[in-house]
């Protein structure tokens, strides 16, 4: 554990809580991609199956359980509790375009050809593209509420801090996880364009982020 890892995990948690609170307080999930949230719930479920096989630390177990619970709570709020506020017509990203390549790739490139390893690899690859339905939705509608952009900012910050964590671990422990690092870098790239818009539009302006 290092400061970048810890800060990254905290940002991840903050992002998830921001989204959950936004939906709960406004009693609405307008502008939120339910598909991205379902993908994140699948990511956590397939990655944290090792909760049943290995024990790493109390921190690790607690965070995994919290992420799982919060991601399912988010999906519940979107599709059940506040489903009448959900803009399904704008959440039109075709999931098969993500799932088919990700499933294929996780069978081809993994550390061991065992169910748990393939599912872990699948979750890593899927996480790197899971935000795409949300970014697609913002591009389609041309705007995002500022609270949604704060959510995306913390999610992007979490990814950037994980890269700093890997640089740190490489230099101090000689640790290098090719699958996680490559997909992590790919994932972070998706946020760069958004980061630019966030700084120029949201932080310097006010209210909604509108695309040029």
């Amino acid at each position: 554990m290092n400061i970048f890892r810890l800060a990254g995990d905290v940002c991840h948690l903050v992002a998830i809580i921001i989204l959950l609170l936004k939906i709960w307080r406004s009693r609405s999930c307008a502008g939120i991609s339910g598909k991205s949230q379902v993908l994140f719930a699948i990511v956590f479920t397939t990655r944290y199956l090792d909760l049943f096989t290995v024990f790493i630390s109390p921190y690790n177990t607690i965070m995994k359980v919290v992420f799982l619970a919060l991601s399912y709570a988010t999906v519940y709020l979107i599709y059940m509790r506040f489903r009448n506020t959900f803009n399904s017509e704008n959440d039109s990203f075709r999931l098969e375009f993500l799932l088919v390549p990700v499933i294929g790739l996780s069978f081809l490139e993994n550390y061991a050809f065992t169910p748990l390893e393939i599912l872990w690899t699948f979750s890593i690859f899927l996480e790197s593209v899971a935000i795409m339905p949300q970014l697609f939705m913002i591009t389609k509608t041309g705007e995002a509420e500022s609270i949604t952009t704060h959510y995306l900012f913390f999610l992007g910050l979490y990814r950037a801090l994980y890269i700093a964590n890997w640089v740190w671990r490489y230099h101090t422990e000689g640790f290098f996880d090719q699958i996680a690092v490559v997909s992590g870098v790919v994932q972070t790239i998706f946020y760069i364009d958004f980061f630019y818009l966030y700084v120029t539009k949201v932080l310097r302006g006010r209210g909604k982020m509108t695309l040029p």
């Binding site: 890892r5 991840h12 290995v54 790493i56 630390s57 872990w120 640790f175 090719q178 699958i179 996680a180």
Partner: peptide, 10 residues
Amino acid sequence: IEGRETKDEL
């Protein structure tokens, strides 16, 4: 270090 040891990350 590769593979298995990565699993401490969330």
